[in-house]
């Protein structure tokens, strides 16, 4: 039950945002994500913005390639240190 899609906030009126995904727009409530601003990319589920999307993917992916190519472990190293 977790279909959610990324979309860009185009406009905000009160706590209702207009979000856009490749030309398609819809209203999404910001009740669960009051900090979101116009221009943010957010994850939308069941008509609500659930989280701001942070583009960390580039560095993560680079680290992954490096590790697979025989480099030292860097991926998710912090979780290992914290021992969770």
């Amino acid at each position: 039950m977790c279909l959610a899609v990324p979309a860009k906030i185009m406009d905000i009126q009160d706590s209702l945002a207009t979000v856009e995904l490749r030309g398609v727009t819809r209203e999404a409530s910001l009740m669960l994500l009051p900090e979101a601003k116009v221009g943010d990319y957010v994850l939308v589920h069941a008509g609500f913005a659930m989280q701001i999307i942070e583009e960390r993917d580039m560095e993560e992916t680079e680290a992954l390639w490096a590790e697979m190519n025989g480099g030292p472990r860097t991926v998710n190293l912090e979780t290992v240190r914290q021992g969770v």
């Binding site: 994850l43 659930m50 583009e55 979780t79």
Partner: peptide
């Protein structure tokens, strides 16, 4: 031989 929780969906999972 490890057991951790890793997050491979950091763009939206904190």
């Amino acid at each position: 031989g490890e057991a951790h929780i890793e997050n491979e969906y950091k763009s939206v999972v904190r």
